[in-house]
Simulated scan of single mutants.
Amino acid sequence: MNTVLALAGCALPFTNGCLLRLHSRFIHAINFIDEHDVLFTLHRYGKGCSPFGWVIRERDFASLRDITSLQVEHGKLHGAKLNIGNRRQITFAAPVGALPPLDVRTFTQMTGLLGPLNQIAEGMTFPVLERVICGLSKWSAGDTPDWSNLIGLGPGLTPSGDDMLCGALAALYCHPRYRNKLRQHLFLPTYRQVMTLTTLVSCSYLDNAARGQFSTQVLRLLYALNKGQCVLPAARALLNHGHTSGADTLLGFVTAQEWLEDNA
């Protein structure tokens, strides 16, 4: 039996003996689910890592193409005559500290719903952004926001509305005041409720974001802002994620940052 070692990733959220079955297979990611529809992803190196996945070296990724199920045994995965372990467990938590505003006026990447990032002029009113702001204000006031008109909205495996909410949550989790509030007051519907509104992959990103866990592409940007470093490499890496996912995430992030300026 051959052994494959992931370069890094999350702690396995599954009990010993749990069976994971293949959910979907893409060029850069292979998704598995357990009996409760909890997602786990094997990512090809160079495309970042989700907070529910492991990164596999490119030369090893090809050996996973025939796997249709994985058995969890003592922190490792077994399937198709392969043992898959993880070299390094990493944290996906956002840094703490109010972040300087991110300027997206030089980014021409397309969002899923509103055109290029740099053409979404400051001060203009867009119904989709108004939904985000309205939801943030409602949640901040102690009410439960209704995100059903945003979750699942737009194109892609992770729809634009979902990516925007993940970006907004990233901005909130970095702010000490709202980080604590997120742990006390429900921001999103339950996992099962979100599953009825969007894709399982997107549901997993939203569920982790609601708990302060973000992809490595998002974290790279957050930590660059937190440390006062040049953010362009991190921003560009995030913008290259998916067709519009990176741009939509940044749009949600800067929208929440603008809201924080008025409500911090």
Rank of each mutant, 00 (worst) to 15 (best):
M1E: 11
L7N: 07
C10W: 03
T15F: 09
T15H: 13
G17R: 09
L19D: 10
L22F: 08
I27P: 00
H28K: 14
D34Y: 11
E35C: 10
L39K: 06
F40K: 03
R44L: 15
P51I: 09
G53M: 05
G53I: 03
I56Q: 07
R59P: 00
D60H: 13
F61W: 03
D66R: 11
D66M: 08
I67N: 04
I67M: 12
H78R: 13
G79S: 11
G85K: 04
R87W: 09
R87K: 13
R88A: 15
I90F: 10
F92Y: 15
P100F: 10
P101Q: 10
P101T: 06
L102R: 02
V104R: 01
V104A: 13
V104C: 13
R105Y: 08
F107K: 01
G115P: 00
P116N: 13
Q119T: 14
Q119D: 10
P127A: 14
V132F: 03
L136E: 07
L136G: 05
S137L: 04
W139N: 07
G142M: 05
T144D: 02
P145E: 08
P145N: 09
D146V: 04
S148V: 00
N149C: 09
I151W: 02
D162P: 03
D162W: 05
G167F: 05
A168K: 00
A170Y: 02
N180Y: 07
R183M: 14
L186F: 06
L186E: 13
F187I: 07
Y191V: 00
M195R: 15
M195L: 15
S204A: 15
S204C: 05
L206D: 06
A209G: 08
Q213W: 08
T216A: 09
Q217A: 14
L221H: 03
K227C: 12
Q229W: 12
C230N: 15
A234V: 01
A237M: 07
L238N: 07
L238C: 08
H241G: 00
G242F: 11
G242C: 11
T244Q: 05
A247P: 00
L251A: 11
V254W: 01
V254F: 01
V254R: 01
T255I: 02
A256D: 02
A256E: 03
E258M: 09
W259Y: 07
D262H: 14
